[in-house]
């Protein structure tokens, strides 16, 4: 009997995780569609998507309950967390450098102002890296 009860608890928890993960993945999709520029879209692509995937995997693990497959799911979650920020960084960086960012929506843009300052400094002294500040 207790075994059966545990099975029900695990099934319910699994359903909750799967639905939560699906909701977050849906929100991530809506965000990618709706957000105004590239950088904002990458936010939607990293955060809700990562947690959504993790929740779906937890839900799967609770339903599968067999050693072998569950360990592979752990690996999927770990590599997702390791690679999603790096991918978002690379896309964001490339987008920023090629002017795909809508600067009219930015309250402050310290990267552009720092780059302009560095450019002015480099024009003064072409072969000098300048002091660290």
């Amino acid at each position: 009997m207790t075994q059966d009860q545990w099975t029900i608890v695990a099934d319910v928890a699994s359903a909750v995780c799967l639905l939560g993960g699906a909701f977050l993945a849906f929100a991530a999709g809506v965000g990618v569609l709706r957000f105004p520029d590239l950088l904002a879209r990458m936010h939607a692509g990293t955060k809700p998507q990562t947690l959504g995937l993790a929740l779906v995997l937890i839900g799967l693990a609770l339903r599968l309950r067999s050693g072998g497959a569950v360990w592979a799911l752990v690996l999927v979650a770990v590599f997702q967390m390791l690679t999603a920020p790096v991918a978002a960084h690379m896309v964001g960086r490339a987008g920023y450098r090629t002017g795909k960012v809508r600067s009219d929506l930015l309250v402050v843009d310290e990267l552009t102002s720092d780059q302009e300052r560095a450019q002015v400094r480099d024009q003064g002294r072409p072969d000098d890296d300048g002091p660290r500040d």
């Binding site: 957000f35 105004p36 950088l39 904002a40 920023y96 960012v101 929506l105 930015l106 309250v107 402050v108 843009d109 310290e110 990267l111 552009t112 720092d114």
Partner: peptide, 8 residues
């Protein structure tokens, strides 16, 4: 519409 910023 979210208003973002780039900070250093």
């Amino acid at each position: 519409v979210p208003h973002g910023a780039v900070i250093g």
